[in-house]
Amino acid sequence: MWNWFKHKNYPDFWKEYLKTFKIKQPKSIEKTRFIVFDTETTGLDTVKDRILSIGAIAITNGIIDVADNFEIYLKQDEFNTDTVEIHGILKEGNIEKFSEEKAIEYFINYLQNAVLIAHHAAFDVKMINAALTRMNLPKLKNKSIDTGILYKKLDGKTGNHFNLDALCKEFNIPKHDRHTASGDAFITALLFLKIISKLKKERTVYYSDLFRTTNNKGLI
């Protein structure tokens, strides 16, 4: 009863978002709309730190669609001068900025039921969820894929931590606009395509394989 009541009070954009999950998902790599995204934040603490910008781009049928991209900057009171030199976003820059609520609303509208992709996805998803919590909303419902974990599914890849810079080097991806949300999202999108292509050469890749967090080779 409480749940039902709370549901009633969701803002319209969230209701629309929920509706998209009622549509049956294709469960095929080719037909799924993937959204590769990245956040720039004031720091790495998912409780204290805040999102400064979100960049995202869609992949459908192996094609990165520039027309289907998202880029937004957030007004935040929290500010950490230490990370400015990484992401380059100043508190009072001349880029148009939006309140966290508005930015998250736009992002949710953009996402719909897409499958999320991010490098070290857990962190970015947590940051978005933290913002949602501040807005009294539930967590994201989207499935997500971590390119760091996906990479480990390739033959002969051991070890635990693979940062984006190392993978850029391995996969020969130019590091333009590194450390901007959109730039990193774009780099991650290319990385995703390259990993999938390499995986496909090694074995048959099933849709469900993408979400396995263990180094399980699936049904070989």
């Binding site: 880029e71 730039g183 774009f186």
Partner: peptide
């Protein structure tokens, strides 16, 4: 609105 990716493509 800023579109970093499109700018990158333009640059190429």
């Amino acid at each position: 609105m800023k579109n970093t990716i499109a700018e990158r493509i333009l640059d190429f």
